[in-house]
Design a protein around this nucleic acid. Sequence first.
RNA 1: GGUCCCGUAGCCAAGUGGUUAGGCAACGGAUUGCAAAUCCGUCUACCCCAGUUCGAUUCUGGGCGGGACCUCCA
Length: 479
Amino acid sequence: MPIRLYNSLTRTLVDLQPREPGHVTMYHCGPTVYSSPHIGNFRSFLFADVLRRFVEDQGCRVTQVMNVTDVGHLTLDDIEAGEDKMEAAARKAGVTAWDVAKRYEDEFHDCQRKLHVRLPHHMPRATEFIAQMGGIIDDLLQKGVAYQRNGNVYFEVARFPGYGKLSGKVLDELEAGARVAVNEEKKDPRDFALWKVDPKHQMQWDAPFRDGVRGFPGWHIECSAMSMHYLGPQIDIHTGGEDNMFPHHECEIAQTEAHTGVPFVGVWLHARHLLVDGTKMSKSLGNFFTVEDVLKKGYTGLELRYALIRVQYRQSLNFTLKGLDEARAAIGRVQQCRQRLARIRDGAEPAGAGDLAPDVAAANAAFTAAMSDDLNVSEALAAVFDFVGVANKAQPTAAGATAALAAFARFDDVLGCFGPEPKADAGADAPAELIALLPARDAAKKAKDWATADAIRQQVAAAGWKIVDTPQGARLEKA
RNA sequence: GGUCCCGUAGCCAAGUGGUUAGGCAACGGAUUGCAAAUCCGUCUACCCCAGUUCGAUUCUGGGCGGGACCUCCA
């Protein structure tokens, strides 16, 4: 079944057709490492992760590149002062911009691990691709689509007819009242910087192109350089947050295609921003959460991951604490089901005669269909939960249970939000002294000595576990 | 001002021109010595107004409400 995706460039659903059959190349606009990653960032990154996992699930090899932007961009407040976000963060913390970048890059990777992200094959830093950026700038200058003024290099938008095709921005209607800083150097206000010169800037490099002046790269050029380096001039998929569409991706297209002369990206995908409590997340509203903020509240990475992927990427997702509680309950329902199946498979619980094969096939088909439909995770989850209901009602054979478990393993391989298969004996990891209590509990129950039975239950509960009574005797589960 | 998205039961959220999505919560029941989990049942909705239609939540137009982008932003 082909994977249908919504191409932002054409605003249509298209079948994913990799340039090289069986191999999909993806580039994702990654984090700018000047502050702690927040849940909004990770909605986008988890979307990219789920996309990669599903493409792999469908039998394609994937090569995935995500950049780390460790060169700062101008802040709104500090534009006048010529200070960028990383340098502002560095100044406030009393360290260098390089220190800031390192610290937050580490934090980003830590969050990736905690949210069970399958790591991209390459995660290059912008600062390590200055030479490659220079090569493109040099070429654009030679081709006459870029020009230099006082050392600053600008891309001349008027020389690239396709400018605006992604974002739909009409060239001569970019609102005069908008935040377009007046810049006398530019031939046209829409022209964007490829290289900037500012002696006050901490991060500086000798110009990596002919007749250039020492400075630092513009914001957009890094993605062109890095994607081209790893994936060649044409890539299958490029993702980012919806805010990246303009100007960032528009500029990427312009400079890359002006340089290579061929279409840059097969399918552009943009993730919708999430809302928190129904409104835009912002520090001033007090509804701003970093990944770490959420984990500190006691939620697991899986729970946060579930909450962030459960809505299709093109819909705005309303993130709430209640949603995290729902995620916890939903994951628990799946894991409970898997554990029972594991017990049946391992003979810890009597098997029945049910052959789940048709149900497994139906669930897999429904899941695939949902995910193939522009990554409709909500519908895919519905397929998973429909199957939970079927499995819970069934009395499967050991083979049937095994097949069902394989289906769940597959669902988790794609979504990554349920966790590993629970052990058949969930109490195996319990402290030995608790396990030792179980025979006494069974004996007490048999003797109808409820006082002793309850005392044992309480003792176990105090240690963070719980007793589950079954026809096969009592067993332990993590509370 | 320009461009674009959305409005589904208590909450989250799919989907469809006519046949109860799903999750969470709540309530009732089965099961259990008591529990947990599970199962059964209840709650069965599509912002408002027009239009098209045999029939609209689904299409069209208008309104109201929320949100996004218009060179900080995932």
